[in-house]
Simulated scan of single mutants.
Amino acid sequence: MDESLVLKKCGYILGSTLGDGSYGKVKSAYSESQNANVAVKIINRKKAAADFLEKFLPRELEIQASLSHSNIVKIFKIFETSNGKVFIIMELGVQGDLLEFVKSRGALPEDFSKKLFRQLSMAIKFLHDQDIVHRDLKCENLLLDKDFNLKVSDFGFTRRITYDDTGKMELSKTFCGSAAYAAPEVLQGIPYNSKMYDVWSMGVILFVMMCGSMPYDDSNIKRMLRIQKEHRVDFPRSKQIPGECKDMIYKTLHPDVKKRLDICAILEHHWLGKTGEVSSRHHNGPATSKPASSSKDKKNVEGKVETDITTDPGKEDHAGPSSPRTEVACVT
């Protein structure tokens, strides 16, 4: 059955394409029952690799459908057709993703960056408290709703942490995600602590929000890795970054995992923990939009050619909230 007919049968009117992934695509749709627009991720099992079908897709469906947090995209319904197409109905990130937002606005005001980073931190703490890791945090996977609140999306590389008989965390050996956001231990192919991988990616995201550029040039991975291992973080001279914020970024981008902040330390950091820093005007987005003052800085974001570390199991792009109760059904 045609995708539009399948969705119409379930009460959704198919709209435009929002993004394409390796094994599927994301489209907008109108939900007649909700009287609102939603995002629909469509995955074709017949085109997907065996590894994706056996490992990544089951994890994504099981984990994301179980999540309920204000800063994680909501899943409204999951159903599958007899010809192998999986439909995931999600909240729509109406303001687009964070990368596009920074590309159009440049570096974000400190108050607004702090608001978004706190929301990201709360979402990741929610996951880490349940021993769930994302492993593909990047600006493209952070969506903004109509009120410019952050929503974490795309759980294609997510997994649950496991422990051995002694209670020690078992390290991840799947080297996934995007090189520009990957921790040095991941780039080196060393078994890694997935929670600390998420933290490194968060540091890159905060740098992008505050500077309007990437902290490292991933066009030369070997050189980038050398700089990371030297613990060098070069802030653009054209940007006035508060010392406390620099300290947060510097400590989340520490090459030594034992010295890197964990998610609890991030939330307790003095830059994020200061009260009264988010003024009311920023609840509906930043009042000002300052473009990157350096063309070089802006190019680092706009001209970035993303390098995936492993095969990408489909993207959510502008998908966007997870309800406490997700419907799972099959359409034949």
Rank of each mutant, 00 (worst) to 15 (best):
L143P: 08
N141V: 01
G189D: 11
V133S: 02
G177E: 01
F207D: 01
G203K: 01
L127N: 05
S219V: 15
N220L: 08
T158G: 10
A180M: 06
T158E: 06
R135E: 05
L142Y: 06
A180C: 05
N149R: 12
G212C: 03
Q188I: 11
T162C: 04
D129M: 06
A183H: 08
F148S: 05
I205H: 05
S194V: 00
M202W: 00
R135N: 08
M209N: 01
C211D: 01
A180W: 04
Y192M: 01
T174R: 07
G212S: 11
Q130C: 06
L150H: 03
N193Y: 10
K125L: 12
D129V: 05
F175V: 01
L187T: 00
C211Y: 02
K168Q: 12
L127P: 01
D154N: 03
V152H: 10
E140V: 09
Q130W: 02
L127A: 07
Q130D: 07
V208R: 08
C176L: 12
L225G: 04
N141M: 01
D165S: 14
M122K: 15
L142N: 04
Y197N: 06
Y192T: 00
D218A: 15
C211H: 00
D217E: 15
F207E: 10
K222M: 03
K146A: 14
M224G: 06
S219I: 15
S201T: 01
N141K: 07
P191Q: 09
